[in-house]
Design a protein around this nucleic acid. Sequence first.
DNA 1: AAAAAAC
Length: 476
Amino acid sequence: MADLASRISNPSDTPANEAAAPAAGSGTGAEQPVDDGIQSGLIEPTYEVEVKLSDLQADTESPLGSGVSSFEELGLPKPILDGLLAMNFKKPSKIQERALPLMISDPPTNMIAQSQSGTGKTAAFVLTVLSRVDFSKPTQPQALLLAPSRELARQIQGVIQQIGQFCENLIVNAAIPGSISRETGVKASVVVGTPGTVMDLVRRRQFDVSQLKVLVIDEADNMLDQQGLGDQCIRVKGLLPKTIQILLFSATFPDKVMNYARKFAPNSNEIKLRHQELTVKGISQMYMDCPTEADKYDVLCKLYGLMTIGSSVIFVRTRGSADEIQRRMEADGHKVAVLHGAYEGANRDALLDDFRSGRSKVLITTNLLARGIDVSSVSMVINYDIPMKGAGNREPDMETYLHRIGRTGRFGRVGVSITFVFDRKSFEAMKAIADHYELDLVQLRPDDWDATEEKVQQVIKSSRAQPDYAPNVLGN
DNA sequence: AAAAAAC
């Protein structure tokens, strides 16, 4: 126990790797080391790039090290460049710079790409998809993108439509429950959906997959690993043209899944990160030492004021406790929204839209929203229940932890995560997560509220200019 | 024992 506590550090301590960084250009607000790190580009990861040239590429010029520093250099069509500009994408992020030349080159090569949360993976694969679509065949499906949840599929659809807003005749369908008409079927060049609905449409012959050129699987480790989702992805792939280009993306690729991913997408180029490189520097990770489980609820209510400075997401283990905590908080006068998979589709869409627009500011949810969801106003993530996995939920879920806290601190912004621990099991899970990612966690105590407020506010209130690669997705 | 995802 004392071991974790000994890792306590003040958020204002300057991380060792920032000491050697060049001074930030901006004068105001430069006191915050968190900002300094971002402004000097330190959130950009050190990539371990391992490029495997396919046989087809072997006699062509090596793409190794051929990163681009502007979108123009990629030779993308003018309408796509205009779309990027309209979305405030001014220059490629690290992952875009590295992955795009490899993905859009001919002949098409598979890709397994890993990059931290909020670093622009979506735009990277969306640009590849748009570069492969023949817009003269607007209702012929040419690209398929799969995501693990309805919410993420809809979000990706929105990003495609935004980046492709100046592409004439671009039609994007969402293959999620209730969105494709039974009479007409899929009538689009780009389809983004969840595996079950996609399978269903193909079986009913309402989705012609014969001309698909590219398959993207977002949150690929989750999609390929899980019983159910994994099976469905394999079945979908079995229906597609054998020569299709396969792109797998995620912030996490545990070794176990990586081996499987390589079979799913053979001869891939690979962009990987070491697990110590996965954490986003702009996210101040803290844990709250609660005496008992019952105390977690009281602490949550006390945090409400801090949660509403920006927007916040509260993660719990079950749908039932999500509903229960909302009921109690509403009764105690705190306005909170709930979103989980038990709700009906249109309701889910409306709930997330409300959160995106700021009509609701505190959202309590399950692992449904752990991955991929991009709402830039989220400045705090609460792990009310620490994520666990495995038989009997006895193992800490390293990957889910990383994805959950990645709902904040997106595209160089700052954010706070607070994980509640209350007993030996949760404490040791937190310690295992800290050791795995080599985290310096800030300890918060329920009995020292002034210190908690100060530590959290120090991060959240450090307003600063957005970096020039921060996109403006979906009107956030 | 969870969450998600199909009719």
